[in-house]
Simulated scan of single mutants.
Amino acid sequence: MMEDFFLPVLSHFQNENFWTASAGALCYRVTPREEGLAAEVWEGPWRYEDSRVEETRTFPLSDEGLEELRRWLTGWRDAIGQRPRPGLEESIRRRDAVRAERARLAGQAEGTA
């Protein structure tokens, strides 16, 4: 099992800063919102904009919420780490599919504006 990964202290999020990082093949982003810490996870290696988010979950903006977030991220890191690694061609195909879907949705949004 990998060592624990780093999460900023609570004041980082209380000061309205987001956090994006990775742990093995897990990539994640944590954003403070009025309702708490919104966390999103996806499988790397691509950046957020080129990836399909697998789950989004909100945690309390508290020390207890950070610990709950850490446990949730640890579960995701372990689950993603057990998956077979896609080859380069498959990884690029997945990235390109996400890009195409985002472009299609952006085109639809422009058509309705």
Rank of each mutant, 00 (worst) to 15 (best):
L73D: 05
Q108F: 07
F6C: 10
A38Y: 07
E16Q: 13
W46V: 03
A25H: 11
D96F: 05
N15P: 05
L7D: 09
W72C: 03
F18V: 09
A103Y: 03
Y48M: 13
D50I: 05
A109Y: 00
P8N: 07
W42A: 01
L69R: 01
P86G: 02
I80Q: 05
V41W: 00
P32W: 01
T58F: 02
P45L: 03
E68C: 08
T20Q: 15
G111R: 11
D50Q: 13
N15S: 15
D50C: 10
E49Y: 03
E110F: 06
L88C: 10
W19F: 14
V98W: 02
G87I: 01
V98N: 08
G44T: 05
E3K: 10
D50L: 09
A97Y: 03
E49K: 10
Q108I: 12
G111I: 08
G87R: 06
M1V: 12
A109F: 01
R70C: 00
F59Y: 02
L26C: 05
S91E: 10
F5I: 03
W42C: 00
R95M: 08
E68G: 08
P45V: 02
Q108L: 15
A103M: 10
T112Y: 10
L69P: 00
A23N: 09
S91K: 02
L10K: 05
D96M: 12
Y48N: 13
E68P: 00
R99F: 06
H12G: 01
F5V: 03
G65D: 12
G75K: 10
L105Q: 15
Y28I: 01
L10F: 00
R99C: 14
G65Q: 09
F5A: 08
I80N: 05
T56A: 11
R33L: 15
E40R: 04
S22L: 04
Q82F: 02
R70W: 01
A97G: 09
F59Q: 03
H12T: 11
I92H: 07
S62E: 15
N15L: 13
V30M: 04
D96Y: 05
R104P: 02
E89I: 12
T112K: 11
R99K: 15
V9L: 12
G44C: 02
G24C: 00
Q108R: 13
T58V: 12
D4M: 10
E40Q: 08
D78K: 12
T20C: 14
D78P: 03
Q108A: 13
A106Q: 11
R29G: 03
W76S: 04
T58E: 13
D63W: 04
E110W: 08
A113Q: 13
E34I: 07
L105I: 06
W42R: 01
T74W: 02
S91G: 07
D96K: 09
